[in-house]
Design a protein around this nucleic acid. Structure first.
Lengths: 338, 338
DNA sequence: CTGTTAGCGCCTTCAT
DNA sequence: ATGAAGGCGCTAACAG
């Protein structure tokens, strides 16, 4: 763990000269440069970024805070973030909140202590605490995937409302009129925005919007499972189900299978989020695929631009379109039920 | 971004006293403590971990370097790592090498600059460079998932040889005698260890081991696709295929489907690595599931133990068993080919 | 082109 | 129980 001083001594120059050579800042004669570089090689010197940070106030590190890295949607975002960060020389820390606002603020505090330059956040709820705190620490944030109410922070997300609208239009086009929606908690924008898109599609088609067909729970396998079981139990017999994320869809699938319902013969199923192509040999579910990698990449680029001094420019909200991919889980309404 | 000095001024004490209150080290009268805590709250003071690090030489941050966080096997490891690290107050940085030894060493250098306390590494190959470098920087490493030749580093992995043996035994039990194996590059231990287990199972059963039935390529969907196409082309007509990781299996699946082969009617398929239960409604492939989360957790605990001064204790190699899960992709040999 | 001085924010050490 | 001095490794600012 050689220091700059040792390198300087060995090369017979001052620490400042070594610094200049290492950072390619300022002048250095070819001869000096060579001597310094030799000393660096001999000692295996690696500059101490911590000391550097203390002076420069920049850690060249950002943090990615998601609900669960294990969800392939977030994994793919993470990959986009890491790739974009790496090309700019930034390191990435990551944290999982499990949709808990308590975990969220704790992590953000811990990360702030470590002097991260910026945060990419998938908010766990609509608490203002994380934003207030980050603002007080002058740490820029870019929100990914979700909207934040009444805050002037940058956002990069997919168009939930339009995506939901498209999916439901697709179902309506197939003749469905009783379409249930299963979604996440009410304090998450993706949860509610998708219901809004769903309702707009119904209204436009002159179909009734009934609260019994709208279920809210957590964005999880268990949530989807519970919601579908409840829907099946209440006797409303929808001919199609719209799951607002991938975990919900898998829970729905399980519940439907257990109930002996065939898809799409007995009921159609559509969902937000696709799985990476690598992961299914023969994709079955009709989805609204979100550009997860792009979301991560764009958010990172926006954040890094802020760090480069783009703080002055006004709030940016980047909304990317999703893509409807029609597969076999959505079909015409069962003839006996039209 | 208040500093300890500002807090001290506001509380009418010295910086040292604030430090003691913040760190619960040394004495402080209740009255002083209260004053300091009030000042901290008023100023929104957050201790600067960077300055702290500079003195203490400990960043309380570790790094996880994998080939691709997008592979659910590594994603799950990452989650295990993060959970274990968080409970101990450690932050985690992550990096993707894409199995490139060049990327690997570059990342490790970057992370070392940031004074990470330790590294969890899935080696991209069998280069000694990363280990030599980390040793020179006195940064402990724990290798995850793979073996490292001739290095005395800690390892936490699944038993590849035994797992492969089990999978192939299963196939042999179903009557298969011509079993092909498709695997990754030869410089990755999981790649070769699994072939060793495969061969042992064959030999024990008195079956021939033929090189034509062993294909090496990259641990990727494309690799699996290429290898199976080649196997189909060479006319050896195996009745079963053993894929040594999940990506290879999906590539194999694609190639088999395109060739019009039914599974398991025409050919059986088994693989290492399961997908998270969340994401397949009705799992189809017979797998040797690795305890990925546990791998990540155990490796992190071992690393943190090293950081706590366990450097003296001798090298540890933790090998966890995998679990054979028989599903529908493996069946008896087609009757016309026994 | 190169060196000197000073200080980033904190904590170890020693003093009171 | 509290404070003062000094330094971790580096680099901005200013000489020369």
């Amino acid at each position: 763990m050689a220091t700059i001083i040792e390198v300087a001594r060995r090369a017979g120059v001052s620490a400042m000269t070594v610094s200049r050579v290492v950072n390619r800042s300022g002048y250095a004669s070819a001869a000096t440069r060579a001597k310094v570089e030799e000393a660096i090689a001999e000692l295996g010197y690696v500059p101490n970024a911590v000391a550097r940070q203390l002076r420069s106030k920049r850690s060249h590190t950002i943090a990615l805070v998601v609900s669960d890295i294990t969800n392939p949607f977030f994994t793919t975002i993470a990959r986009g973030v890491e790739d974009a960060a790496a090309t700019r020389g930034y390191a990435v820390m990551f944290a999982n909140t499990d949709e808990s606002e308590v975990e969220e603020i704790e992590y953000i505090r811990m990360l702030a202590q470590r002097q991260i330059d910026g945060v990419l956040l998938v908010p766990a709820g609509n608490s203002a605490a994380p934003f207030r705190f980050l603002e007080s620490q002058e740490i820029p944030v870019v929100v990914i995937d979700r909207r934040v109410v009444s805050r002037k922070v940058d956002e990069v997300r997919c168009d939930s409302e339009a995506g939901a609208y498209e999916l439901v239009r697709h179902l309506i086009g197939l003749g469905h009129t009783r379409i249930a929606v299963i979604t996440g908690r009410r304090n998450i924008s993706t949860s509610t925005d998708r219901v809004v898109g769903y309702e707009r599609a119904l209204r436009e088609a002159g179909l009734p919007v009934s609260p019994e067909l709208e279920a809210y729970d957590s964005f999880s396998l268990e949530g989807g499972y519970r919601q579908v079981n409840q829907i099946l139990a209440n006797g409303l017999k929808p001919t199609a189900i719209f799951a607002t994320n991938n975990f919900l869809a898998f829970g729905a699938l399980r519940a439907l299978r257990e109930a002996g319902m065939r898809i799409p013969d007995d009921v159609s199923l559509v969902t937000f989020d696709d799985l990476p192509v690598e992961w299914h040999d023969d994709p079955f579910i009709t989805v609204l695929a979100q550009p997860a990698y792009e979301l991560g990449r764009r958010a990172t680029e926006l954040l890094l631009a802020r760090l480069d001094g783009g703080a002055a420019t006004k709030r940016q909200v980047i909304v990317l379109p999703g893509e409807l991919i029609v597969r076999r889980s959505s079909g015409p309404v069962p003839t006996d039920r039209v």
